[in-house]
Design a protein around this nucleic acid. Sequence first.
DNA 1: CTCTAAGGTGAATCTCCTT
DNA 2: CAAGGAGATTCACCTTAGA
Lengths: 373, 373
Amino acid sequence: MGLSPSVQRLPTTFPLDEILVGDCIASMNALPPSSVDCVFADPPYNLQLGEGGLLRPDHSFVDAVDDDWDKFATFEAYDTFTRAWLTAARRVMKPNATLWVIGSYHNIFRVGSALQDLGFWILNDIVWRKANPMPNFRGKRFTNAHETLIWASRSAESKGYTFHYEGLKGGNDDVQMRSDWFIPLCTGDERLKGADGLKVHPTQKPEALLARTLLSATNPGDVILDPFFGTGTTGAVAKRLGRRFIGCERDPVYADAARKRIDAVEPLSTAALLVAPTKRAEPRVAFLSVIEAGHIRPGEMLSDARGRHTAIVRPDGTLMAGPVAGSIHKIGALVQGLPSCNGWDFWHATRGGKPVLIDTFRAKMRAAMGSAA
Amino acid sequence: MGLSPSVQRLPTTFPLDEILVGDCIASMNALPPSSVDCVFADPPYNLQLGEGGLLRPDHSFVDAVDDDWDKFATFEAYDTFTRAWLTAARRVMKPNATLWVIGSYHNIFRVGSALQDLGFWILNDIVWRKANPMPNFRGKRFTNAHETLIWASRSAESKGYTFHYEGLKGGNDDVQMRSDWFIPLCTGDERLKGADGLKVHPTQKPEALLARTLLSATNPGDVILDPFFGTGTTGAVAKRLGRRFIGCERDPVYADAARKRIDAVEPLSTAALLVAPTKRAEPRVAFLSVIEAGHIRPGEMLSDARGRHTAIVRPDGTLMAGPVAGSIHKIGALVQGLPSCNGWDFWHATRGGKPVLIDTFRAKMRAAMGSAA
DNA sequence: CTCTAAGGTGAATCTCCTT
DNA sequence: CAAGGAGATTCACCTTAGA
């Protein structure tokens, strides 16, 4: 490649919120292992079969010396390149980090196969449905109105990855966020333009797309690595959302544009970025504590919503149904003949003649614990 | 399998509108080369489901695909299988024939890579957006709400393939048909059920999906080959639309069901062979999308009509009132002390000193989404 | 008969902590 | 490290039962 050592930054300290100008594989290999929380990658994918093989469309501003970067004579060459950067990225991922890659039908099947071969575990493929796609001018195909993102964990054993299920559901009319996202292209003021009025980068991604990925799969303060930084959409969105970034970009012109762009970004207030705790992460409350706090009396009778099943509360926090005693969950499962049951969402106490779910009392205790802390 | 030679049909005449019971590769190899106009393939997806099974929140059991035909030991074994049937299919394709394959993220990247390696030329990838997908019961991923079809010609030199651009456009309110299709699952009367009331095949595809592919990429009288015929959706739709079919199916039970099904199909009159009008999705707009579109800023304060209640907009599309975060509906209900609330008709942003109902912004987006929904 | 309520179901790589 | 238990988790559509 012939990059001078001064340009190829080899960080002694961890390069937070910086752009590493140079080959992304060398830059990633210079980072310590297990050091980033998320990778977002928008690799070259304008593969087109020309006379001599697969070529990326010409970019006049790309230095001729740099041509090797994005020319791929064959699928095999593209696969070699893909495996190389995926391997380097996987090394710097923490065990529960996740990877996002975006592509189109030209390259996404190569990328998807490669990451499966390398041990990544696909969590979803996401379809970015473009609000305003380029029409198919010649009328020979369907309008290519989407691109595909792959979301993958580092391995099948990575069960602890970040996913803000409840937040996404809350922002989507209280139904689960689906795998198809409808988002407009990057146009207007958001699109970076040079002094000549031309777009600086041919494939600048919309910030809304990056925002949804980072809000889904990262926490404030997390480090996001982007091996193909371009004009820095990942960095701009990361800064605005209170995340940290590391960008790799081999073209100094893109890197400069990205730096200026990110400098101008105002981060959101930390108040707006607070992560609501998931139910699983909330403090445990024992059923016995609810009794001890006086919300439920020993000897009281609990029932299900329709009054078909009943059980007696014992002072040690177990229930008794007929001759059998056990936890609220076990007895709930037993009376229903089910393999399991969440007793908090099944049993009701009677208050003012009406059934009150016992989870209501737990919620009160959690609220009281919060104000006390 | 131990199929007897009499069952493994080796056609001396061309087997039009027949089901060849046996291994699809052997059946295809027994056909003359360059003899079919189109291939539609719904191969095993290699789902790799876990041992334990999956329960719904109400503890009922999810009837997953656990058939032996979907099990492969490794990705390598799946790739070998994929290359074998793709090679056999390619041999019988006419020079301008096209191939359709459907899959999910489990297998589609393997299939796409293999067919590129074999010389097929991808024309589009198509996203089947499911109207009614199965939810993600554990809240660990995005709802897997789509499957992917790849549409490919036999080679990059196949320029004369069939594509009914004008017909599709006419059936789509005179805008080009996009690469994302919104179609319901195969349920109700269309779903084949046995005498026991259970579904005959675990993965029967909707006829609407096949109809759109065949109307797009074949002519009346064309021969469509389906190497994984199953219960014969391809054959049923082909007959109804005045096309011919050849089906390969290993399981005689599926083949019998398919034969009976296809016998009952009434072909449409030629006058009726127009593109079915596009079924529009109801334009659901997430509050998050309103933020992404820039109509409302994260960190902004919303209030009710009289300014008695306020909440902060978070970047993920939830609201925060005091320490509690949730959807526009949940927080609206919370601040009013009501059991429920339509947040769209409750919360206002301030524009030019005046309160503007947030539903105003949703209406703007619906208008802008137009045909894409 | 109509209308409502309740129940079933679809290609799913679907938990996590403690003992 | 395996086993067991706590407890968290569903959307759109269709069919059937019941009023």
